[in-house]
Simulated scan of single mutants.
Amino acid sequence: MKLYIKYMVSLRCKMLVKEELKNLGLHYTSVELGVIDIRENITPEKREKLRKVLLMSGLELMEDKKAKLIEKIKIVIIEMVHYSEELPKVKYSEYISNILGHDYTYLSNIFSEVKGSTIEHYIIEHKIEKVKELLLYDELNLTEISYRMNYSSVAHLSSQFKKVTGLTPTFYKNLAEKKRRNLENV
Results as ranks from 00 to 15, higher is better:
A176N: 11
R181F: 10
G101A: 02
L11G: 14
S30P: 02
Y106H: 11
V17G: 02
M1E: 11
E133A: 06
E79G: 10
H82P: 07
Q160M: 05
R47D: 04
T168Q: 02
S146A: 09
A67I: 11
L16S: 09
K65C: 13
L50Q: 00
L54G: 00
L175N: 08
R181A: 12
N141A: 08
R181S: 13
G34V: 04
L54V: 05
I5H: 00
K91Q: 13
G166Q: 01
R47P: 08
L16T: 15
T165G: 00
Y172D: 09
I99M: 03
D37N: 13
L100A: 02
T105A: 10
T105N: 15
F111Q: 02
L69K: 02
L55K: 11
G25T: 03
E125W: 04
N182H: 13
K52Q: 13
L33A: 03
E48N: 05
S97P: 06
E177N: 09
S158C: 03
S112T: 08
G25C: 05
L61V: 03
I110G: 04
T118P: 01
Y4C: 06
K127N: 03
S57Q: 15
P88M: 05
S117Y: 07
E129V: 04
E86D: 13
E139N: 14
L136E: 14
S146E: 00
V90Y: 02
T29W: 04
Y147I: 14
E32W: 06
L87Q: 06
I128P: 05
L24N: 04
E71W: 05
S30A: 08
I5F: 00
I110C: 06
S10W: 01
L167H: 07
S10A: 08
V9E: 15
R181K: 14
L140D: 10
K132I: 02
I145N: 03
T43F: 03
L21D: 01
E48H: 04
E63W: 05
R180L: 09
I36K: 01
V90C: 06
L175R: 11
L11Y: 08
K52D: 12
D64Q: 02
K72L: 12
Y7L: 08
E45W: 07
I75Q: 04
Y92A: 07
Y83E: 10
K115R: 07
I75E: 10
K68M: 15
L50T: 09
V76T: 09
K91P: 12
H27Q: 15
K179A: 09
T43P: 04
E60D: 09
K89I: 14
G34M: 00
A155V: 10
I124C: 03
N23D: 15
Q160Y: 03
L87Y: 06
N98Q: 11
K132N: 06
A176T: 14
V114N: 01
I73Q: 03
L50A: 04
E40P: 08
M1C: 10
T29L: 11
L61F: 01
Y106K: 13
L26F: 02
I124E: 15
L24W: 04
N182E: 15
E19A: 10
K173G: 07
R39W: 07
E19R: 15
E184D: 15
